[in-house]
Write a protein that binds this DNA or RNA. Structure first.
Lengths: 160, 160
DNA sequence: ATGCTGGATAACGCAAACGTTAGTTACAAT
DNA sequence: ATTGTAACTAACGTTTGCGTTATCCAGCAT
């Protein structure tokens, strides 16, 4: 990547902590926070399910959800099981859903470089079955939304 | 996102720590590590420049570079300034350059949600000037490589 | 040889995040 | 009213990462 003319001398300017990437990393500061977001994309909504599926402790999830609520990435939604009291479940806000490229690009890189070519899961367009990728492009390619993505499992990983 | 039929019951299976996203987060574990990668994309190669431009301490950069070297994301390259001894500079490997979607998607989200619509920097295709975006798509849109991206500054942020 | 300098790291105290344990809350059941 | 339970959360000791300081190391200069 090249800087435009007046930015070439990197010692002559700074945006300091104004950098968007840096700011995001202050919100998504820990691995647990990221994994909660991942589980949200996978459809997990309830506290104990986050704990079980991430394989972490309840306080870690509690702290992560607190941060994510504060950041406007997840929002609590009341629900009521018959015969139980009302509780909160946690759902991605629009801002949260817009983290999809972050999530998928991490996944994509890991699939390429950490799985020896055998990604456990793959993501395809529900309607067409075409594989989804994250692309850096200037083209106005039609973007696939969360709701139109289906997750499939690599047979090599599948043991019912 | 929906799981394919046999994955619907989330309590009946688990890929545990095989998840690519989780594995990547073990490598890119800290904010400093991410920021070093960011600086690599911005063309920074030398130890002291990382320290100055990230605004962190030398040992933090040392630790981050050690991790990134071990992960194969940056590689040391010898260089020699006239009148000085040979030293290492640090450059992204191919694997490192493939983190571009991760970096840009973080930036893009931050630009949208943490900058009140005034992103400090924007990324355009060098040849055409068209703005670059990270897209989740099944379309075979042509991808723009690192080397074809130019970084421009938002006038509101510019104070030479 | 001795000192000097830029590049990088070890040592160590401090702060942040983790997991274990224990406690709290808001109900349903009896 | 009392007990039971699911869903959290506070308290707290341990681990991990950070920044400050001090040190090391290689090679150029004298």
């Amino acid at each position: 990547m090249k800087f435009e003319e007046r930015l070439r001398d990197r010692d002559a300017w700074s945006i300091g902590d104004g950098c968007s990437a840096g700011r995001v990393l202050d919100l998504l500061s820990t691995k647990t926070v990221f994994l909660v977001v991942r589980e949200c994309f996978y459809g997990t909504t309830r506290f104990d399910d986050f704990v079980a599926r991430i394989g972490t402790s309840a306080p870690a999830v509690s702290r992560a959800l607190k941060q994510l609520k504060a950041a406007g990435i997840v929002a609590p939604v009341l629900y009521r099981e018959p015969g139980s009291r009302a509780r909160d479940e946690y759902r991605l806000t629009e801002a949260g859903q817009d983290l999809l490229p972050v999530f998928l690009s991490l996944m994509q890189w890991g699939d390429t470089y950490l799985q020896e070519g055998r990604p456990p899961l793959s993501f395809v367009e529900t309607d067409t079955g075409r594989p989804i990728r994250v692309r850096v492009t200037a083209d106005a390619a039609p973007e696939t939304m969360c709701d139109d993505i289906e997750i499939r499992v690599n047979p090599a990983w599948w043991r019912g």
